[in-house]
Amino acid sequence: METIVMIKQVPDTTEIRIDPSTGNLIREGIESIINPDDRHAIEAALQIKEKLGGSIIAICMGPSQAIDAISEALGFGVDRGILLTDKCFAGADTWATSFTLGRAVEKINNYDLIICGQQAIDGDTAQVGPQLAEYLHIPQITYVKGIKEITEKKIVAKRLVESGYEIIGCGLPALLTVVRELNKTRFPRFDWLIDACNKRAPIEIWNAADLGVKAYQVGLQGSFTNVISTYTPTFKRRGEILEGDSQRMVEDLLTRLEENHLV
């Protein structure tokens, strides 16, 4: 079983602050992590490998420091890592990203299963997985919260929907996007992490020329959508702190709720 896991390095958004004077995100000092859903994708791949054998490749597109995400993946037990990095990959929307990842998968040219996290915590789009599946003309199962059966030839998975879940089967190769309910992630092995930071670690770095793509097909140039403006959401609130003892405050609150026809 040859599995490819797509991982993204993201800023830990739980740590993000907004600069009050500019309204911009403060990224300095924010730790970069493997996107949480992608950790579950790695775990799923490891469990499948433990059952069926084979190997796991982790692919990450990002700036050169995203190699840390790949090293960490190797620490979990992923066999090989590929970092897709190039100036011209920068600013990619999901269309350009799925194309770039698709070319990398075509270059590897040997896989049974691709596993992605459901969505990344920085963009929250959940689009790259299905777009990659379409690029590769393979079936997709999204929101995977359980794997009922997997063999070299097919997979049966539980797909989370609003009213419960569906049990979906398809032949391989296929692409899954997984949610955190799927599994509990393990800790990386310290010795493997050290090995992963070694110069001879099985990590390759591919640029646009290695993928055989043109600069205008990738990154910002290869994107259909553009961010034209950003702003920090603000909401006007009354901000009234009620005073007095508990009885007084509760009475006052009820009066205000009644005045606004809320109860």
Binding site: P11, T13, I16, L25, G123, D124, T225, S229, T230, Y231
Partner: peptide, 13 residues
């Protein structure tokens, strides 16, 4: 919303 709702982005296609 992006970045967990910390930022709003306007996008055109």
């Amino acid at each position: 919303p992006a970045f967990g709702g910390n930022l709003m982005a306007t996008i055109i296609n």
